[in-house]
Write a protein that binds this DNA or RNA. Structure first.
Lengths: 202, 202
DNA sequence: TCTTTATCTTGACAGTGTCAAATTATACGC
DNA sequence: GCGTATAATTTGACACTGTCAAGATAAAGA
């Protein structure tokens, strides 16, 4: 059976099969628990078949993270794009959406925004091409808020974006890392963050 | 030569020698680059000598993290304890101190507040005994600010502490993980954070 | 049909954490 | 001071990891 997918040799579509299996394993066992050999077993293929589709383990993780950014962007633009909803409500929705998405995909969030990839400059071009627009989207969103007078204009929008993002990222991290043990208070923490950072939403 | 240190058998004081070597390697290569066998080489001892002083690798990392918390607390109480300095200035100093300490000890900070230890409940009692007071210190500090009217009282001090800490943690993480590539703007980001979170400091 | 090319497997290597058994050095009772 | 118990350390081994080179297999193109 030839032309069914993009790659239709022995396996059919090994590349995306590996990506799916990797995403599954990461969601369940985390990045530390991901071994290429177990992965090959999951897909029913030999241990080094993978190297014909990814240069090495890092390249595979990059691809999984890239997929994560794609679905992150889908989530974000959905919750922030509806112009019929008043801006203050949208701001609150954005905060809730951000933190909840991280809490619902803790391992993936960790892979996307965590240090192993970014710290050591291990992100390849494909990943950067998806990740940078995500950063940029937040900046444009918050710049828009500032222009509408929802934020104080005494500091550059870039800095305010960095601080707001830091707060969201910090909340997400502290919750998903289990430092804030009682995650039942996520909504209250989000409320408080909105209250402190976004004076126009009271 | 008997009673010179706590452990004076073959090596003399292998336990703290291992801790020092581990802290050094973590500071330079990061936690991922730390191998027990290289560590044993550093100290000049066999690969499994370590197991008579630490139950396993995680126990050693716990001990390193515990030392980190001790020095973190020393730094923090130094910058926040001087009562002769006006409170708003101390608040600003606290924010600067927090972020800068993280930036100066990125790998150690990562180990102390990162997920491998807390997420999977890998922290032993010794570590918790040092870490919890650190959390508690921040809470008491910020509660104090609120009582002095430096913060709005419309939300519980616990929640405000969590949000402020999240912001500091997020800033530290985004900088040390290399997501905020240009770390020369750390001070501006701290300024902006103080500005947004602590209305009494303008 | 034959050649080329891409895909996959097998064997191997260096590296990892960890344990059991053997070895060595120190401490303690006499 | 000597002999024994105990703690510290080493050696050998195991299962696991990522990665590569060489060989085998299947598809694609002429």
């Amino acid at each position: 059976m030839p032309s069914s997918g993009t790659q239709t040799y022995h396996h059919g579509d090994l590349r995306s099969a590996l990506l799916d299996a990797a995403a599954n394993r990461i969601e369940n066992q985390g990045i530390e628990g991901l071994s290429l050999r177990k992965l090959a077993d999951d897909v029913g293929v030999s241990r080094s078949a993978l190297y014909h589709h990814f240069r090495d383990k890092n390249a595979l993780l990059n691809a999984v993270a890239a997929n994560g950014f794609a679905s992150w962007i889908a989530m974000t633009s959905e919750s922030g794009g509806d112009e019929s909803v008043p801006a203050p409500v949208r701001m609150k929705q954005f905060v809730y959406g951000y933190v909840h998405w991280a809490v619902e995909h803790p391992q993936l969030y960790d892979l996307m925004f965590g240090r192993p990839i970014w710290k050591n400059d291990l992100a390849d071009d494909e990943l950067k091409d998806v990740a940078y627009p995500a950063f940029q989207y937040m900046l444009s969103l918050i710049t828009h808020w500032q222009q509408q007078g929802l934020l104080l204009a005494d500091k550059p929008a870039l800095r305010q974006t960095q601080v707001i993002w830091a707060t969201l990222h910090g909340l997400a991290k502290l919750v998903t890392d289990g430092v804030y043990a009682d995650s039942s208070h996520i909504d209250e923490m989000c409320d408080c963050a909105v209250n402190m950072l976004l004076p126009s939403v009271n």
